[in-house]
């Protein structure tokens, strides 16, 4: 008994290396959190004072003048492009995830190829999506639509809201697929069996039992995709954004202004960076609030769903 106790108290001996490396990795963790906090504090602190209702609700006449500028068209542009994107990406992503979890034989070649494609799509650089949008949607689809419709001037074959949204939809497809798949896999197989044993077809089981259960997960995927897309600039650079336009976009073939692109313009094209700094910070703050709010909502929904599913067994 005494022997065991003596060994148990070995921790009395100060283990230098253990302490040193735990401290080192702990510091790395703290450092990363420090980066995040610094960025957030810096932006909130500097952006808060110049943020006003006037700023977010005004259509600007001079981008670089605090008094006459506003970011309404940018907020509208970002919102619309992201909204149009979800219309395309959610159905395709959800159906693909349904195929992968509910229909696909796990070991078949086609399933593995689809999974590999999804993984790869997630890793394609965003600027390449931009090139793709330009090469495929604008120069191929758009130009051919103009030819077919006999448009005297180019209507579809040039950068536009719809092409930017479609490009983003391709980019965020993996986000939606992965999130939906995760939520489908979390549904207990017993529920599917119960439904099938009652004589429901596969489709009925999916529509009536599986999808209602997976809805919050699908929602999370959609929100994550939206938040990812809202902050992306590179893909829309070549496919539809513009530095300045009068008024708001009216049709899918219009160009649009965008929050993230506006941040880029303000920080690189301004003649007097000190004068535009407040505008810049306020714009960044709005962009950050938008993407972070979405992220936090997604995290909360996900946490709730996990809790509920755990209760379900």
């Amino acid at each position: 008994m005494n022997g065991t106790q003596a060994r148990h108290f070995r921790a009395d001996k100060f283990d230098f290396w253990s302490f040193f490396f735990s401290g080192l990795t702990g510091l790395a963790t703290l450092f990363i959190i420090g980066i995040l906090v610094t960025i957030l504090v810096n932006i909130i602190y500097n952006g808060w004072s110049s943020l006003s209702w006037h700023f977010v609700s005004t259509i600007p006449t001079d981008l670089f003048n605090m008094k006459t500028t506003g970011i309404l068209p940018m907020i509208v542009g970002t919102t619309i492009r992201v909204f149009v994107m979800t219309i395309f990406v959610i159905p395709v992503g959800v159906i693909t995830a349904i195929y992968l979890t509910e229909y696909a034989p796990n070991t078949s070649l086609i399933t593995r190829v689809i999974r590999a494609a999804v993984n790869n799509l997630a890793g394609v650089p965003s600027i390449v999506f931009g090139l793709f949008g330009l090469g495929f949607f604008i120069n191929f689809v758009g130009k051919n639509m103009d030819l077919l419709l006999h448009n005297p001037t180019s209507v579809w074959g040039r950068p536009a809201l719809i092409w930017a949204a479609l490009t983003l939809a391709v980019m965020t497809l993996p986000v939606v697929i992965v999130a939906t798949e995760e939520s489908l896999k979390a549904i207990p197989p017993g529920l599917r069996e119960a439904s099938l044993a009652l004589g429901a077809t596969k489709l009925e089981t999916i529509l009536k039992i599986v999808l209602p259960q997976a809805l919050p997960g699908i929602l999370t995927g959609g929100i994550l995709a939206v938040s990812r897309a809202a902050g992306e600039v590179a893909p829309i650079l070549l496919t539809g954004v513009c530095t300045y336009m009068v008024g708001l976009p009216h049709s899918p073939t219009d160009q649009f202004m965008d929050l993230g692109y506006h941040v880029f313009i303000l920080s690189t094209q301004s003649n007097d960076i000190d004068a535009t700094r407040p505008i810049l910070y306020a714009t960044v703050l709005v962009l950050l609030m938008l993407t972070f709010a979405l992220n936090i909502v997604a995290i909360l929904i996900r946490a709730r769903v996990r809790k509920k599913l755990r209760a379900l067994g």
Binding site: G190, L191, E193, A197, L312
Partner: peptide
């Protein structure tokens, strides 16, 4: 042919 499973699995 109906079936009742080992683990009760009522729909939510």
């Amino acid at each position: 042919v109906g079936m009742v499973f080992q683990k009760s699995n009522p729909f939510p």
